[in-house]
Each structure stands twice: as C-alpha cells, then as structure tokens.
Design a protein around this nucleic acid. Structure first.
Lengths: 241, 241
DNA sequence: GCCGCCATTTGATTTTGATCAAGTGAAAGC
DNA sequence: GCTTTCACTTGATCAAAATCAAATGGCGGC
C-alpha cells in the first residue's frame, strides 16, 4: 500500500479539509495539499434542512458538491407532476454531473444534511489538469451506473413486497458504512419518498411495511426506526436469492 | 476547431481502423496512430448472430468491445428467471465495465451485429497512460447513466401505453444517428425483448402496439417495420410534453 | 403447395396495485 | 389542555396489467 500524498504533508492541508469526513472517501482524497488549498479557497460548507433543494431539474449547474453528512435524493419529474427518485446519494458521495451545463435531474436533501460546495469552473479546471481526479469521478459515475441498473431491475420486475424489501436492504447496507451492525437504522425517507423511489403509491408502501412487520421480517418503531432480525430473510423477501 | 491527431498522419493508422465506423464516435477516436496500431495488434473483429452472447452475468471480463454495427442489449436476470433489459447500446458505443473484474450484467446481440474486441489488460494499460482515453470512457459512462435514469422514470412512473411509446421514440432517435429521417425504422428487438425492456409482458406490449396503430400514432408492417407520421404526437403519447 | 414452427395477436379471467375515502396517532400551536 | 395538522395506516372499490388460453400469420423445410 502506498501512503496517500496528503498524509505526508498533513499540516499543509486546510483545517476544514483535515476534519472533513468526505476527504478520504470523496473526490478530495486524490488531491494534493496544494490542490486542496486551492479548491478550499472557493469552497463553502452548507447545512441543509430536510427537503432543501441543492439544484433543480433544468437549472444551470454552477456548483458541484460533496455530501458530508446526510442523504440526498436525485429526482426526475414529469410535466404532470409524476415523480421518480432515480438515485440516493450518501456521504461522502460526490454530487454533480460533470461536462453538462444543465442538470437533467433535481437534487434535494432527504434528511438534514451538510454539503461542501465548489464552483463548477474551478473543479472543471482541476479535472483537466489532474487525471487522478477524473479517474475518481469516473469511478463514481460507474458506481452510480451500476446502482441505477440494479434499481431498474427492481422497478421493472419486482412485486410491491419485493420492492419495499429491496429498499430496506439498500438502506440497511448504505446508511452507515462504518457500522458493522446493519440490522437497526432510521429510514432517511418519508413514505412518500419511498413510494417515489419504488414507483408505487404511499398506500401500497404502507401496506407492504405492515405485511413485512406481521411476517416478522422487520420491526418498526416511531414509523422511521427499523430493525431487521434476520438480514438474509429480508434479502430473500427482496428477491435476491 | 483543432485537427484530430489521427488525421494528420492518416496513413499511419491501421487499415482496418481507417475503415472503421467506430473510430470517430467510439473510444478509438482519441488515440494516436501509434496507440491505434498497438491496440490493433491485439484486437479482433467478430460478427455476431442475433442472440449471441458477448458476456454473461457474473462472468470474468476478459475483453472490452466497440460496437461497429447493430444493437446490443444489456440485461439482468433474477434467480427465478425474471429478466430486465437495463441498457441498449448502439454503434459506435463502447461495451464494457472498466475497473471491475466481474460483469454484473450480461450483454447479448439484439440484432445481427459486428463488434471489435480488445483484451481488457491492454486497454486498461492504455487508459492509465492516456488521460484523454479515460475522459472519453468517463463521458460514455455519464451518457449511459443519464439514459439509465431517464429509463428509471419510464419504468417507475409511466403507463403501459406511455412505456411503449417511449420505447418507439427511443429507437427512432437512436437507431440511425446519421439519418435525418427518423420517422421510419426497423425495430431491433422482438416483442419479448421489448417487454423485458419495459417491465411488461409480451401480451401487454402487443396490445399497446395495436392500440397505437389504431389511434394512427404509428403504422406497422411485417411486425418489425414502424412508421411514425408525427413524431411530436408520439412524444406526447410517451408522456414527454 | 403443404406442414409445422414460432412469433405475435387476440380474448377471457384474475391479480395486483391504484384510487378514493376514512381513520389513527403523534407533535406543534393556541 | 385542547385543537389542528401532518404523516401514516387501514378499508372498500376500481382499473390496469398479468395470466391463462386460443387463434393467426408468416416462414423455412419437405
């Protein structure tokens, strides 16, 4: 294993970056101390209330972001208001669509969140000069593509029960990558958001929750806190044998 | 506009590459004559019958490919056989998932096709040395991600009729990027494949075709040839206002 | 030309999830 | 403390698409 560059000159790294949870997992991890300092000059942290919009569908992209805390949902809306969540981003994911001036989706905090913004043109310039950074962004794009295709199978071919179980499994495995115990977690989405993620209605989502609860696949407290006694059993209900 | 490198030393480019339709649109377009020559040493062209498998879900990736002619479908299968097409690739798309040893999807020729294979390790090495090549692959990954997310909206929120109309619109706009007349084309997929793409059954797909035909949105000859008298009208039926 | 095969269409019925409509329950405001 | 609100649940009915089943129609082989 090679030693990461920023660990060699740790003291040269901006203080806010040194304390940043996204530094290693996020895109910043591949930057040198100098580059981080440069990027940091133009970046700013923001706290987002649940529901706050980061960018809207069709808007001009002026910022990219790193998610430092919380969950951000990516959504597409049809002209008549029908809505579909097309991705969920967890800290320390990168947020943004490089190389396109206009956003084809909207991004909105699903939970109370914190993000670090940097101007599009600064990062674009940095990407051109730093193949390692483009590589990191490429990796993230491919990860998102894999996830999108997994979800297409769920949307196209699974039953309502399997969809809800798949969602619970997804959250269990993504909400806290540090934690070894995935069996207990808070849902980052409301029933309405879950419905928009699964291509179902609120009522159907609710009914399937109740059904999974009655079958002892999950326990639910306060509508948001879920406990999974047997993860393999949940996976089987999700259709992932 | 800068002149492309390979056009300066056109005569140095391998003959097969010079005649290759994928050279400009595909990933090879960013390579120098020397790099093309190197890559060409290890690459091989193949003709694929409709239905021929390029790679199977779970298999080890040994080759990447360029699609030179035809349409390739990317599919995911569940343990019980339910199937979802998660992407359609048209010439001159790149085919492969960089940086992962095992394929999460299977790729199969939807029509009679022709592809150009190159060994994974040769291209991987070339990518490391050629930021411009990684940029090109990154662009393609982002394009596929945009398409996947568009399709998630279709799968999750559209009616059967809208799904079928969306499919026809997709094909009309992708099947022959050269042609200005998109109003007449052959479907590259069977009804079964269309069903797997749309998350529907064969019967429902067939009924929606009949319905669109009766409403004069499309004309159909020989099951496979489609004519669209009014593309905007088709778009409206697809829910894209 | 006729047969058999396969893809596609069409029809009848069932199932799943959507829609419409009340109810519940917890937290915020008066 | 009571009401209001909002998210969620539950129930009754409806509609869309799945399923089951049969018919059609083109095409290659004989």
């Amino acid at each position: 294993m090679e030693i990461r560059r920023q660990d060699i000159h740790n003291s040269d790294i901006p203080l806010v970056c040194r304390a940043c949870e996204a530094r290693h997992g996020g895109v910043c991890g591949v930057l040198t101390a100098e580059q981080l300092t440069e990027l940091n000059k133009h970046s700013s942290r923001h706290r987002l209330d649940s529901g706050a919009e980061v960018i809207g569908q069709g808007e001009t992209v002026v910022n990219y972001s790193n998610i430092m805390r919380g969950v951000v949902k990516l959504t597409k809306v049809m002209a008549d208001g029908r809505q579909q969540i097309v991705g969920l981003q967890f800290a320390p994911d990168f947020l943004g669509r490089p190389f396109l001036a206009e956003s084809a989706i909207s991004a909105e905090a699903a939970t109370e969140s914190e993000i670090c913004n940097f101007p599009r043109n600064v990062l674009d310039r940095l990407v051109k000069r730093t193949p390692e950074l483009e590589h990191r962004l490429h990796q993230q794009a491919l990860k998102e593509l894999d996830e999108a295709r997994d979800w297409m199978l769920t949307l196209g071919r699974k039953s309502a029960q399997e969809k809800v179980a798949s969602f619970l499994y997804l959250i269990a495995t993504h909400i806290d990558p540090e934690s070894l115990d995935m069996s207990s977690f808070d849902l980052p989405l409301s029933r309405a958001d879950i419905a928009d993620f699964l291509g179902l209605t609120i009522e159907t989502v609710s009914r399937q929750f109740t059904k999974l609860r009655k079958e002892n696949v999950i326990r639910i407290e306060n509508n948001r806190h879920v406990t999974v006694p047997d993860m393999d059993r949940l996976m089987r209900h999700a259709g992932n044998d």
